[in-house]
Design a protein around this nucleic acid. Structure first.
Lengths: 329, 329
DNA sequence: TCCCCCTAAGTTAGCGCTAACAATTAGCTT
DNA sequence: AAGCTAATTGTTAGCGCTAACTTAGGGGGA
């Protein structure tokens, strides 16, 4: 910085002011300094800066199940939003969701003196751990229910499920099944709940619930089961992969989609538009979720813990796997 | 640190010595200091430490395609290894593999003054970009071929493919097909090559190559195609998902696995053991890969750029989808 | 016994930056 | 024209740590 100052013929403090966009620098000086910075390829030393400002410009992201579409994309969304806001992202991932592992990971972030933490661990167990821990830095949890002890950013899963189911109801379906994710996943539970409530509101039967595990395989098995029973005209799958499995099962069983049975997925994975037929599904907007996370975290970092929540509304994407029941060819 | 020193009745430098495991501290003093640290819950300030030592204890991990099994698990492996070695992990992910995006991400890491960089971008295009860039900090690339300009840690994909194909050859198969990944992925190309070479060595035909895209869907289509043609008795799929798709296609086509057709996957994803029948596949050892990455990076960080390479050998996991051709029931 | 050396501490300086304050200049107002 | 304000720049101190140097106390060999 001293070198830059010398080259620009100013003091190091003026260079600092230029870098921090301080208002009281004349346009001419600013230009000279910027020129010198470019010329020398100067980069500010983060450590020195952190030492005096007492912020690291780093946020910690704690994750688990990163091989799944939801968590992986939430991480990407948060990462992108953080980078856009000038923050660095440090990550730690949990192999197992236990209090000890969580504690360790948080300790690791404290050692790094992160300015804030985002938690992407979509299990009920995490919520319990988190709500008993008192944190030294702001923390935003992704996907949990509203709770004043925690700042939360989430996609409204119940609404997403409602959107899907209501769409089927509106088309005239009266027997609508659901293949769910593992119920210890918060999102899976919320989607089951949304499915159930929407059916209740329409005074329809909610007895056909099949427990899946997110895999195409489990969707396939569910599809086979439903085709054999022949009791429903529509299926709401808790993710696109299970929908894909079901699609195959239906085709094997000689059921045409959507003429004989309608199908709605969840996630709007890129391939959803390219299935045959293209899958009606629910888009969760992970970019938006990531941006909201950062926004909340920045707010909490500025004003202290808020316990607020920010809910992103999912969007139904209607493609070709849904139609009124028993459509003539 | 001053507080700790006061409580332990020593100078702050002695505290520093204890924290850095300096030899010239008496056991008794060390104990007193450690006690004081525990009592006060003291944590060393990373920024101050970085400022004087000129290292950030942070490595940057540049990734892409994090929704795929390989990249995601490599990231996890590197992350774990880094944490074990006392390093923090900063991540940046690429939405598109272009020189500009790569340059931006590397610049971002330089701003953070990372001590080293790991690149997990399994595309040919990345290799070209990287080998023209000269880096200010050590960089280890994952999965590229050996090249003295780059330090590389990789799984020996050709060997993995060989293991799979040789296993089929040893069982007596003479017509062995391959469903590959997209050929701009380095791993996909290497597996094709391994398949081809092993067949050549056994003087077998390598004409049945089907280009897949990693998805179960593409494996399914390949399976259908092969079943219809009826020319091969074995299929080597470039990942487990495609193997899964093929498995279903074979079953639809009335082909029994392994009696009528043998199948080998690649990746050894957790679910591979639970397919029906359990899938013979190739295990890549991402933990080991991550550890090797860190080991090389640490070496390069200590001794300057090495251009060395470290190759992890994959392991064939024989389960139930492979058998000699045309086995009687 | 004396001196030297080795061990276990303490003291000092400075890493590169920003905040707070001080100083200078220019531009008004009266 | 004196005096005041505002805008711009410079000077100084210190963030919390480690490296390098300094000091104080014991042994052990001559």
């Amino acid at each position: 910085m001293e070198d830059v100052a010398r080259l620009a013929g100013v003091s190091h403090q003026t260079v600092s002011r230029v870098l921090n966009a301080h208002p009281n620098v004349s346009a001419q000086t600013r230009e000279r300094v910027e020129q010198a910075i470019r010329e020398l390829g100067y980069r500010r030393n983060t450590a020195a800066r952190s030492l005096v400002t007492r912020r690291s410009q780093t946020i910690g992201v704690l994750g688990s199940d990163m091989s799944h579409y939801g968590p992986a994309n939430t991480l990407l969304g948060v990462q992108q939003a953080a980078r856009d806001k000038g923050y660095f992202v440090s990550m730690a991932s949990l192999n197992e969701v236990t209090p000890v592992a969580i504690q360790d990971a948080l300790e690791y972030f404290m050692m790094q003196s992160v300015d804030g933490i985002v938690v992407i661990v979509p299990h009920e167990a995490m919520f319990e751990s988190l709500s008993t821990i008192s944190m030294a830095v702001p923390l935003v949890a992704v996907g949990f229910g509203v709770d004043e002890r925690l700042s939360v950013a989430a996609v409204n899963q119940r609404m997403g499920a409602s959107l899907a189911v209501q769409h089927l109801v509106d088309l005239g379906h009266t027997a609508i099944a659901h293949v769910s994710g593992p119920p210890d996943w918060i999102d899976a539970a919320a989607r089951i709940d949304g499915w159930r409530r929407t059916l209740a509101q329409a005074e329809l039967d909610d007895s056909v619930l099949i427990r899946g595990n997110w895999s195409a395989e489990s969707g396939y098995r569910a599809g086979l089961e439903l085709a054999a029973a022949g009791k429903v005209t529509a299926l709401f799958a808790a993710n696109d992969q299970m929908a894909l499995g079901a699609l195959r099962a239906f085709s094997e069983a000689g059921l045409r989609v959507p003429q004989d049975i309608s199908l709605v997925g969840y996630d709007d994975q890129p391939e959803a538009a390219y299935l045959v037929p293209p899958l009606t599904t629910v888009n969760q907007g992970f970019k938006e979720l990531g941006a909201r996370c950062m926004q909340m975290l920045l707010f909490d970092m500025a004003n202290g813990h808020s316990g607020a929540s920010s809910v992103v509304n999912p969007r139904l994407v209607v493609r070709s796997t849904t139609a009124p029941p028993h459509t003539a060819r």
